[in-house]
Amino acid sequence: MWNAEDMDAPAVMARLAATIDAHNWDELPSLLHEDFVCRYVHTGEVFDGPAWVRLNAGYPGFEHLVLEDCVGTDNRAAGRSLVTGRSGQQLQHFEVATFITLRNGLIAEMTEVWADVDEVAPAGTRPG
């Protein structure tokens, strides 16, 4: 068993990503504070801990989450992850920015912003 009080926010973010990538839904609640709340900026949805765990565990077609970058302090971290999943036979790619705040070593607040990287930018908006 890990001791949450001994980990800074970037370490907790890395553990969160590894837990989700492994589809270890039984361990996921152990990373969340009892007052956990998650906000999805892009949709306006707000989840408590049990609802957020159910959403992740039941998300259709989810395959992997890879934490590609993470910065932070003792109690706050920001991370960027690549998420892949399938819709039928088609592989989908998403980028997600995740911001966490810890309380007593557990994630008390989370904000996520998701983007579908398979979308094509409108003509004339790409650099170069």
Rank of each mutant, 00 (worst) to 15 (best):
M1D: 00
W2Y: 08
A4Y: 08
E5V: 00
M7Q: 03
D8V: 14
A11V: 12
M13E: 01
M13S: 08
A14L: 01
A14W: 02
A14S: 07
R15G: 05
R15P: 10
R15S: 05
L16F: 09
A18D: 00
D21F: 12
D21L: 14
D21E: 07
A22R: 01
A22N: 05
N24E: 01
W25S: 12
W25E: 09
D26G: 07
L28T: 02
L28W: 08
P29C: 04
P29R: 07
S30W: 07
L31K: 05
D35I: 04
T43Q: 04
T43G: 08
E45T: 04
V46M: 05
V46N: 11
F47L: 09
G49E: 02
A51L: 02
V53M: 10
Y59T: 13
G61T: 10
G61W: 04
F62G: 10
F62I: 03
E63I: 04
H64E: 13
L65T: 15
L65K: 08
V66R: 15
L67P: 03
E68H: 02
E68V: 10
D69S: 15
C70H: 00
G72V: 01
T73H: 02
D74E: 14
N75D: 11
A78C: 14
A78L: 15
S81M: 15
L82C: 11
L82T: 15
T84R: 08
G88I: 00
Q89V: 03
L91D: 13
Q92E: 14
H93D: 13
F94R: 06
E95C: 13
A97C: 15
F99E: 08
I100Q: 10
L102M: 06
R103M: 03
R103N: 10
R103F: 06
G105R: 04
I107L: 05
I107G: 13
I107H: 09
A108G: 12
M110D: 09
W114I: 09
A115P: 00
D116W: 06
V117H: 04
V117F: 05
E119P: 02
P122Q: 03
T125L: 11
G128M: 09
G128E: 00
G128R: 11
